[in-house]
Amino acid sequence: MGKIAWQIIGVGGTALAAMATRKALATVWEKSTHRAVPTNPNDDEIGLAEALAWTVVSGVGVAVVRLTVQRYAAKTIRSKFGEETLPKAMRPNQARLEN
Rank of each mutant, 00 (worst) to 15 (best):
G2K: 05
G2L: 01
G2W: 01
A5N: 02
W6F: 11
W6T: 05
W6V: 09
I8P: 01
V11E: 01
V11C: 05
V11R: 09
V11Q: 00
V11K: 01
G12M: 03
G12E: 04
G12Y: 03
T14Q: 11
A15D: 06
L16S: 02
A17S: 09
A18F: 02
A18I: 01
A20T: 02
T21S: 00
T21F: 02
K23N: 09
L25I: 10
L25N: 04
A26P: 06
A26R: 11
T27L: 06
V28A: 14
E30Q: 14
E30H: 03
K31E: 13
T33H: 11
T33E: 07
H34K: 15
R35S: 13
A36H: 12
A36N: 12
V37T: 11
V37Q: 05
P38F: 02
P38N: 02
P41M: 05
D44G: 04
E45W: 03
I46D: 11
I46V: 15
G47K: 06
L48F: 13
A49R: 13
E50N: 10
A51W: 06
A51G: 07
L52Q: 15
L52S: 14
A53I: 05
W54C: 06
W54P: 11
T55N: 12
T55V: 01
T55R: 13
T55M: 07
V56E: 04
V56F: 09
V57S: 10
V57R: 04
S58V: 15
S58A: 13
G59Q: 06
G61C: 00
V62I: 14
V62C: 01
V65Y: 00
V65K: 02
V65R: 05
L67H: 10
Q70D: 08
R71K: 11
R71E: 10
A73H: 00
A73V: 03
K75Y: 12
K75A: 15
T76N: 13
T76M: 14
T76A: 15
R78S: 12
S79A: 15
K80C: 09
K80W: 10
F81A: 09
F81K: 09
E83C: 06
E84P: 00
T85D: 08
L86G: 04
P87W: 00
A89Y: 00
R91P: 01
R91H: 04
R91Q: 10
P92G: 02
N93V: 14
Q94M: 09
Q94V: 13
Q94I: 15
A95H: 08
A95W: 06
R96V: 07
R96L: 10
L97D: 07
E98V: 15
E98W: 13
N99Y: 12
